[in-house]
Simulated assay, not measured.
Amino acid sequence: MPDEVPATGGPALGVVGRGRLGSALLAACRAGGTRVSLTASRRDGWQVDAVPDVLVDASAPEAHADVLAYCTAHRVPLVACVSNLTDAQWTSLEELATVVPVVRATNLSFAHYVQLRIAEFTAALTRGPLGPTTTTVRERHPIGKAHRPSATALVLAQTWAGASGRTVADIADERAGLPVSEHELTHTWNGESLHVRHHVGSWAVPARGALTAAGWARTAAPGLVTMRTVYDDLTARSTP
């Protein structure tokens, strides 16, 4: 049955998936006093005490139809953490977002958001006579990562291209080492290089990001957004 912990005023969560992220998220809920009113997994099925305020999907593409149906039927905001969906499944999320908030959370880390902002800052500085740079992306995940290059690596490349008007020269992917991931942008020009590397060593990091996204989505208007919108909004609120 769903984990019962004292309510703290935040959203009651539904958590779909008992893998690495789902398990870390449930642990974070227990530690922080966030009530979990729904859990779902391939082994145990759907266990529901009450309709949650927000549903976090940390499962797999195979569960997408059930997640979509539940959120549609109960008008529950969704934090979608499954990155390897099909085009048709992404389209169905867009349709759901016409009635509830949907956060497309392919990377939940706040430091990844900062890395994207640094990429945009670097692009602005290297447009003039001191540039241009040659830019590459490198990503590393442990053996067993579902697809390559990762969604985060592609977002880094797309962000750089959009900000600079120049595509990255290469995206290198590696499958080795310890959890959880590394993503690095390397800018090279005039005999020097700048490396902007982000390393995540614990699944507690994306779990915290999922809780942040859920808290944001609870009061958001319907629409499909990414974690960039969530962190843009939250950092703007905290700026004097």
Rank of each mutant, 00 (worst) to 15 (best):
residue 27 A to Y: 03
residue 198 H to V: 03
residue 204 A to R: 13
residue 198 H to S: 06
residue 122 T to G: 05
residue 50 A to V: 08
residue 106 T to Q: 12
residue 71 C to Y: 02
residue 13 L to V: 14
residue 16 V to I: 15
residue 207 A to M: 00
residue 235 T to M: 14
residue 166 R to N: 08
residue 119 A to L: 15
residue 23 S to G: 11
residue 74 H to Y: 06
residue 140 R to C: 09
residue 108 L to G: 05
residue 131 G to F: 05
residue 213 A to D: 13
residue 181 S to K: 07
residue 208 R to L: 15
residue 82 V to K: 04
residue 45 G to D: 08
residue 173 D to L: 05
residue 160 W to D: 06
residue 217 A to I: 06
residue 204 A to P: 07
residue 149 P to V: 07
residue 228 R to E: 09
residue 132 P to N: 10
residue 190 N to C: 06
residue 98 T to K: 03
residue 129 P to I: 09
residue 35 R to F: 08
residue 22 G to W: 08
residue 167 T to D: 14
residue 162 G to H: 06
residue 183 H to G: 00
residue 208 R to P: 00
residue 92 S to I: 05
residue 239 T to Y: 05
residue 137 V to M: 08
residue 48 V to M: 10
residue 33 G to L: 01
residue 222 P to V: 02
residue 103 V to Y: 10
residue 36 V to F: 11
residue 197 R to V: 00
residue 200 V to I: 15
residue 180 V to W: 09
residue 174 E to Q: 12
residue 213 A to R: 11
residue 227 M to R: 09
residue 188 T to N: 01
residue 75 R to G: 09
residue 157 A to C: 05
residue 183 H to Y: 13
residue 117 R to C: 14
residue 184 E to C: 07
residue 188 T to H: 04
residue 107 N to K: 06
residue 46 W to A: 05
residue 183 H to F: 07
residue 38 L to V: 15
residue 168 V to D: 09
residue 132 P to H: 09
residue 117 R to Q: 15
residue 231 Y to P: 10
residue 222 P to R: 00
residue 56 V to D: 04
residue 67 V to Q: 07
residue 176 A to G: 04
residue 47 Q to W: 13
residue 181 S to C: 12
residue 234 L to I: 14
residue 182 E to T: 14
residue 231 Y to D: 10
residue 151 A to G: 07
residue 105 A to P: 08
residue 170 D to G: 12
residue 113 Y to R: 06
residue 145 K to I: 04
residue 70 Y to S: 05
residue 33 G to V: 07
residue 129 P to Q: 08
residue 180 V to P: 06
residue 139 E to P: 04
residue 9 G to W: 08
residue 130 L to V: 13
residue 216 W to K: 10
residue 93 L to Q: 02
residue 216 W to Q: 09
residue 223 G to C: 01
residue 164 S to V: 00
residue 95 E to P: 00
residue 135 T to K: 06
residue 49 D to T: 14
residue 229 T to L: 12
residue 139 E to S: 13
residue 48 V to D: 09
residue 187 H to K: 00
